[in-house]
């Protein structure tokens, strides 16, 4: 075990990850779960963590890199505290998703894809979140869904999360 490994995979982290990994047939298979769990713990996946994961799963760092960059739910940089993922796919677009993005622009002063200067808020457009019945909708902090959005609701969401 390298020093880097021990730094990332602390006892506390291993206590969460080992039981999950044990459920899988091969060492590599739980890669996505391991990355999810590390991200939940540390906030994002750094290059250092990728190396440690490679050591833990007995694969090359490139194998981990490929996975981290292929999927959209992994963050390679520290996250903003409040993240609005606004759906931009067809049903949401039909029902005004572009206007929702403009509301964020107006109330936060940032365009889609950007972060407020204090690093607190981020607005990003994402593809269909499987909640088209709520269109236009967004996901807050990669967790809860909010739907039937309009300007008042956007303002309220910003206010509540200030």
């Amino acid at each position: 075990m390298t020093e880097l490994f021990n730094k990332i995979f602390t006892k506390e982290v291993l206590a969460k990850i080992d039981p999950v990994v044990a459920k899988y047939e091969t060492r590599r298979a739980p890669m996505l779960e391991v990355l999810h769990l590390l991200q939940e713990h540390y906030g994002h996946i750094s290059l250092e963590m990728e190396e440690a994961v490679a050591e833990y799963l007995k694969v090359s760092p490139m194998d981990v890199r490929e996975v981290v960059t292929f999927y959209t739910l992994y963050y390679t940089q520290p996250k903003a505290k409040v993240r609005f993922n606004v759906c931009r796919t067809l049903t949401c677009n039909l029902l005004g998703a572009e206007n929702i993005v403009k509301c964020f622009e107006k109330h936060l002063g940032i365009k889609s894809g950007a972060r407020t200067q204090d690093g607190k808020f981020e607005v990003k457009e994402v593809e269909c979140l499987g909640a088209c019945e709520l269109a236009p909708m967004l996901q807050l902090n990669d967790d809860e869904y909010f739907g039937h959005l309009n300007e008042a609701k956007v303002a309220e969401l910003i206010q509540k999360n200030k």
Partner: peptide
Amino acid sequence: VVHRGAGAYICGEETGLLESLEGKKG
């Protein structure tokens, strides 16, 4: 065993899904 995806439409395609379940790109 419940396995979480990580945001990729292609992992709904059954063999992309299998790759993802094996710890790879989908």
